[in-house]
Computed example of a mutant assay.
Amino acid sequence: MFRVFNLILFLGFLMTGSSLVAQETGFTKLFNGKNLDGWIGNKDSYRAENGMIVINPDGDGGGNLYTEKEYGNFILNFEFKLTPGANNGLGIHAPLEGDAAYVGKEIQILDNRAKKYAELQDYQYHGSVYGVIPARRGFLKPVGEWNKQTVIVNHPKIQVILNGTTILQGDYLEASKEGTLDKKEHPGLERSSGHIGFLGHGDVLYFRNIQIKELK
């Protein structure tokens, strides 16, 4: 019964919830904890170290690291640890060329508490679909602690769960039908599959326990 309830919530978004735990059954590891096999892109800035994907400051911390495989609908679980002022992103349905925030979709990964981000637009804070749907704030753990995040995609619906609380739930095509919040073109909103990636902005971050369950 619990699995049936979760499936309805994941795929139908028939109710809003503040707490949701994705099931481990049927998940596949995207990161083996040892190397970046299965990933493509900037392997100078990103490295495997002690069971984590680390953004390497010596490699400038920029650039993108993508899964070799493309994904459509899925449940993605991962953990991340921020450093002060850190900024990164989770790309979904992305091609390998172009800015994933526009040619795909970008889910913000950001140290919301940093003073330099105090004047951002609502759609730029952690968990937001960049430029399109703002996320709720106040659920990140302090910098230096591990956060757990789940991203559920059933095109065009998306849900982001941070540390057990739903911070974003919506339909990105519906949200943008009268224009996007950032007033820019986002052709990637129409894409229903593509690569998953980490989108660097020159800052140090850590990722681990990255796993995915594909949905039909």
Rank of each mutant, 00 (worst) to 15 (best):
V21N: 15
E68T: 13
K148V: 11
G179P: 05
F207Y: 14
L30T: 05
Q121G: 15
G51H: 07
Q121I: 11
F74A: 03
R3K: 15
H126F: 13
A114P: 08
G62C: 07
S19D: 11
V103Q: 02
P84R: 03
K177P: 06
T165H: 13
T28V: 15
I158Y: 00
I133E: 00
S128R: 01
D122H: 11
Y206R: 07
S176N: 07
N112M: 09
K157I: 03
G61V: 02
K184I: 08
G61W: 06
L110T: 02
V129G: 04
G17A: 13
Q23C: 13
I107E: 01
E119G: 12
R3V: 08
L36E: 01
G200V: 05
L173Y: 00
K183I: 04
G164T: 00
T25R: 15
Q169Y: 03
S128V: 06
E106D: 02
G33T: 03
G138N: 03
L76N: 07
T16Q: 13
I75S: 06
F198C: 00
N6E: 04
V160H: 01
L140Q: 02
K184A: 12
F13V: 08
H201G: 07
N6K: 06
E119S: 15
R137N: 10
V132T: 07
G33S: 07
Y46F: 10
E49H: 15
Y172M: 09
I55R: 14
L90K: 09
P187W: 00
F207S: 06
G41R: 04
S128A: 12
K29G: 12
K141F: 00
E24V: 12
Y71Q: 04
F27Y: 13
L20C: 07
T165V: 15
A118E: 11
